Simulated scan of single mutants.
Amino acid sequence: MTDAPESDAAEPDAPETDALEPDTRLADFEQHRRTVFGIAYRMLGSVADAEDLVQDTWLRWSRVTGPVASPGGYLARTVTNLALNRLDSAAVRRESYVGPWLPEPLVAAPDSTEDVERAETVSIALLVVLESLSPLERAVFVLKEAFGFSYQEIAEALDRTEAACRQVGSRARAHVRARRPRYDAPPELRRRATDQFLAASVGGDLNRMLELLAPDVTAWSDGGGVIRAALRPVTGADNVARFLLGVLRQLGETAQVRPVLVNGQPGLLVTVDGAVDSVSVLDFIEGPDGEPLISAVHAVRNPHKLSHLA
């Protein structure tokens, strides 16, 4: 069954009445640009593809020849349907992808006060879970949970009934909840645990690393067949700690590791001779003493996924 609408649904019908002033069209688009990018990025997990869809959405919006009651709704509908159409080709590429696939990371300075595209709904771990949803489930989940659209608005955007969208949304939430247990550790605890893990890793302190890792921790490494990376997830605290220490040793003395925000969560950026080598983000569970333990490490090394950070 194909969830995505046909390609001609990507451009909502626009009224052809009095022409809108170009400056007005641009102002309306810029007002909603972050939302347009946010929908595309959550749907595709790719910064480059999301930027492409932002441009495609603008081209369609710039051709609107009359007033639109809700520019935000129109733009959300347009980019969602464009993303649904793009997902078909993305699925084909994923089938032949070498090793684990991870989303392209959004990186900010560790002291950034900017809302990184609503961090809780754009975390790397959540985007990985969204990959297991059908395109329609992903669209409904993103529009509802990340951007707060009503089911009536979602139904209009996707040309479905409101009842059908409610059913899809309920199914998607249950799927995400089962695969993404929430742990609401305060940001300062996450940051402190990340800083401690960074210090232990750079210092080669295996014992301290083991104290910070959950016993069943899993590390995913995305090299895409372009650069060396583990082709399968590494599991277990001892295996993960030794694997990460081995990677740092291989990178050599010119490697530098510094804390950053990755999709709104504390993470690590590794450079070698000044060039970005990898971006990692840590996921946490609550430990026996209430302190966070690292339950997952997601490391993106594929240079094609890091080119936007240069």
Results as ranks from 00 to 15, higher is better:
His308Pro: 07
Val36Asn: 01
Thr35Ile: 13
Ala275Glu: 15
Leu306His: 06
Pro215Gly: 02
Glu153Ser: 11
Leu251Gly: 04
Asn302Ser: 08
Phe149Trp: 04
Val300Cys: 06
Leu75Glu: 02
Arg33Ser: 13
Pro303Glu: 08
Cys165Leu: 04
Tyr97His: 15
Arg118Glu: 02
Pro5Arg: 15
Tyr74Thr: 02
His32Pro: 03
Val98Met: 03
Val202Lys: 08
Lys305Phe: 01
Arg190Leu: 13
Leu245Thr: 10
Ala299Lys: 11
Ala108Gly: 08
Leu59Gly: 12
Pro288Ser: 02
Asp111His: 07
Leu210Asp: 01
Ile39Cys: 01
Val276Thr: 10
Leu82Trp: 07
Ala90Val: 15
Arg232Ile: 00
Arg177Pro: 07
Leu75Ala: 05
Val168His: 10
Arg60Leu: 13
Ala50Lys: 05
Gly225Ala: 05
Pro5Asp: 13
Thr194Trp: 03
Gly45Pro: 06
Gly264Lys: 06
Tyr97Gly: 10
Asp49Tyr: 10
Glu104Met: 06
Ala219Tyr: 05
Pro186Phe: 05
Ala230Val: 12
Phe284Pro: 00
His304Glu: 15
Leu189Phe: 11
His32Asp: 02
Arg232Gln: 14
Thr78Phe: 05
Arg160Ile: 07
Ala48Asp: 15
Ala296Asp: 07
Leu306Val: 01
Pro71Cys: 11
Asn302Cys: 10
Pro259Cys: 04
Asp8Tyr: 14
Gly264Trp: 05
Arg94Cys: 02
Trp61Asp: 07
Pro292Tyr: 02
Gly236Trp: 00
Leu245Lys: 06
Arg63Glu: 10
Gln55Tyr: 15
Ala9Gly: 12
Thr161Asp: 14
Pro292Ile: 04
Gln196Met: 12
Leu26Ile: 06
Gly252Ile: 11
Val140Lys: 05
Gln196Lys: 07
Val47Ser: 02
Asn207Arg: 13
Leu130Val: 03
Glu131His: 11
Ala83Met: 12
Leu213Ser: 11
Asp238Arg: 14
Val240Arg: 08
Leu268Ala: 12
Ser89Leu: 12
Trp101Ala: 07
Tyr183Arg: 09
Gln167His: 08
Leu244Cys: 11
Thr218Pro: 05
Val64Lys: 02
Glu145Asp: 09
Ile154Ser: 06
Arg173Gln: 09
Gly224Pro: 01
Glu51Ala: 11
Leu309Asp: 03
Ala108Leu: 11
Asp23Gly: 12
Lys144Cys: 00
Val68Ala: 08
Asp222Ile: 00
Gly45Gln: 04
Ala296Thr: 04
Arg208Asn: 11
Ala199Gln: 14
Tyr41Lys: 08
Arg191Gln: 14
Glu95Gln: 15
Cys165Tyr: 05
Phe243Ile: 07
Arg249Asn: 11
Asp13Gln: 14
Asp159Val: 14
